[in-house]
Write a protein that binds this DNA or RNA. Structure first.
Length: 202
DNA sequence: CCGGGGATTATCT
DNA sequence: GATAATCCCCGGC
C-alpha cells in the first residue's frame, strides 16, 4: 500500500482526479486506532464556475477557507448541523477545486467504526454516504485544513485493479439548487458496489 | 445579535 | 420518493 504523492493532488483537472480516486483507500489513524476503507464514490467541485460549489463565483469566507488551501489539504465542513463532510483539495493554492468523498467500503478497523457510529453490526450503512463515512473514520470539522501528507488522514493506492468501465458517472447528489450545474456528470462510483450511496442515475 | 443556509440521513410508503 | 429531524456558525446588520 502506497501513499498517494502530492503530485497526484496537484493535477489540474479536478474531475479527472475524482474519477481516479475511485478504488483508492482512505485511512485515518487517531489515538493509535487505524480505520480505513476503499473509496467507491466521489464528486468533483470545480473552482469558481461551479454553482454547486461553496466557492462559486469566488466566494471565500471562514467557512470555506480551506478550499483555497494547497493541494492535498483536507476540507471538512458541517452539513445540516450534524454531518461532517470530508473533501480533498486539489490544484494550486488559491484555486478552490475540491473532491467530496461520498462513500467507502470498510477495510480496517471495523470494530472501531461500529463503536464510533453506534451501530451493532456491519452493514452497508456503516460507510455509505458522506456523513456516515466521516463518522466511521472519526473525522470532524476540526480536522479541516490538515495536510494529508503529514497528518493522521491519508489516501493510499494498492494493487486493487480497476478499469474505466467499472466506474460509472452521473450528476451529483443533492445539489438541485445549483440549476443547470447540478446536471454536470461530476459524480463517480464503483459499479455494483453496495456502499454506493444513491442508486446511480443511468 | 439573530436569521438562515446546508454537497444528509433514516424511516416510512 | 417524500418527509421530518436537526443545529452550529457565519455574516450581515
Amino acid at each position: 500500500m502506497k501513499k498517494l504523492p502530492l503530485s497526484f493532488y496537484q493535477q489540474k483537472d479536478v474531475v479527472e482526479i475524482a474519477r481516479q480516486l475511485v478504488g483508492k483507500i482512505v485511512l485515518t489513524n487517531f489515538d493509535g486506532l487505524t480505520t480505513s476503507g476503499r473509496i467507491v464514490e466521489t464528486e468533483a467541485y470545480v473552482a469558481l464556475i461551479d454553482k454547486a460549489s461553496h466557492s462559486y463565483n469566488g466566494r471565500r469566507t471562514a467557512k470555506n477557507e480551506h478550499m483555497y488551501a494547497a493541494a492535498g489539504t483536507a476540507y471538512v465542513y458541517i452539513c445540516y448541523g450534524m454531518h461532517q463532510m470530508l473533501n480533498v483539495v486539489t490544484n494550486n493554492e488559491d484555486v478552490p477545486d475540491a473532491i467530496l468523498i461520498r462513500a467507502i467500503e470498510p477495510l480496517e478497523g471495523i470494530d472501531e467504526m461500529l463503536k464510533r457510529t453506534g451501530k451493532k453490526q456491519l452493514d452497508n450503512t456503516l460507510t455509505r454516504g458522506p456523513g456516515n463515512l466521516a463518522k466511521a473514520l472519526g473525522i470532524f470539522k476540526q480536522h479541516s485544513g490538515l495536510k494529508l501528507m503529514n497528518s493522521h488522514i491519508n489516501i493510499y493506492s494498492d494493487d486493487f485493479y480497476i478499469t474505466n468501465d467499472l466506474i460509472g458517472s452521473s450528476k451529483r447528489i443533492g445539489v438541485e439548487s445549483a440549476g443547470p450545474d447540478s446536471l454536470l456528470p461530476y459524480r463517480f462510483y464503483l459499479r455494483g458496489n453496495k456502499y454506493v450511496s444513491a442508486r446511480p442515475v443511468k
